[in-house]
Structure formats: C-alpha cells, structure tokens
Simulated scan of single mutants.
Amino acid sequence: MSDPALVTSARVLRDEALAVFKGDLEIAKLEISPGRVKERAFDEAVEMLDGAKAIADENRVVIGATFAALLGWFFREPIRQMADRLIDKVRSGD
C-alpha cells in the first residue's frame, strides 16, 4: 500500500501549496478592490500628466505653433473678411 512517510510529506506539500494559493488569492482580492483600483488609476493619471508636462516643457515652440495654426483655422473666415476690408481700403486710398 502507501508509505506513511510519503503520504505525510504529500499532505505537508499540499498544505503548503494551499497556504500559498490562499495568500495569492487574498492579494488578488486586495488588488481588485474598488479602493485599490481607484488608487492605481489615480497614480497612473498623475504619472501620465507628469509625462505630458515634461514633453510640453521640451516642445513649447511646437505647441505654440500648433495652437496658433488651430486659431488661424478656426478664425479663418473673420481673418479673411478683415483682410478683404483692409485691401479695399488700401486700394481706395482711405
């Protein structure tokens, strides 16, 4: 039949594996708790904002030029009308 020492060592290994599994299960439960998810999401958002700020600090000219181009695009019609009026005044001699 079975060797009692073998059965005992198998039970000890089983109990140790069960303890490790239960510990991992508790860690997993803590990691997916709403408070922990919220905390990790907040930390990730702060890290992303810090990264974006660092990139923006390094590329101020590019961001400024892009912003100016966007403003020009959105206000292209009023700018064109103002330029037309100015050209008309110059041509009429006023």
Rank of each mutant, 00 (worst) to 15 (best):
G72A: 04
G93M: 13
D94V: 09
R76K: 12
V20I: 14
V61S: 15
W73M: 05
D15G: 01
A52M: 14
V61P: 00
K53A: 08
R91S: 10
I27K: 12
Q81A: 14
A69L: 10
E58D: 11
M1H: 05
A19W: 03
I87D: 14
R60E: 11
K53C: 03
L71F: 05
D24A: 04
R40I: 12
A41R: 04
V62Q: 14
A52G: 03
M82K: 09
A52P: 00
D43N: 12
L71E: 09
R11C: 04
S9T: 14
R36M: 12
D50R: 13
R14Q: 11
A17H: 04
A5S: 13
A56T: 09
Q81P: 04
D24Y: 00
I79P: 01
V37F: 08
V37T: 10
A45G: 01
L71C: 06
E26D: 15
S33L: 04
L71M: 10
A54M: 10
V46S: 03
A5M: 08
G23W: 02
K38D: 09
A17M: 08
S9P: 00
L13Q: 08
S92F: 04
V90N: 09
A54S: 13
A17V: 03
A41H: 02
V46R: 09
I79S: 08
G64L: 13
V37C: 07
I32T: 10
D15N: 15
D84S: 11
A5T: 13
L13P: 00
L70W: 06
V90I: 08
A56H: 07
A65Q: 13
R36Y: 10
G64N: 15
A28C: 06
D43F: 02
K53H: 03
V61K: 13
W73D: 06
E31D: 14
D24H: 01
F67Q: 11
M82N: 05
A17C: 02
I79M: 12
K29Q: 15
E31Q: 14
W73A: 06
F21V: 07
M1V: 07
D84H: 10
I55C: 01
S9F: 04
F42T: 07
V20W: 05
E44T: 06
Q81I: 12
P4I: 06
K22V: 09
G64F: 09
W73R: 05
F21A: 11
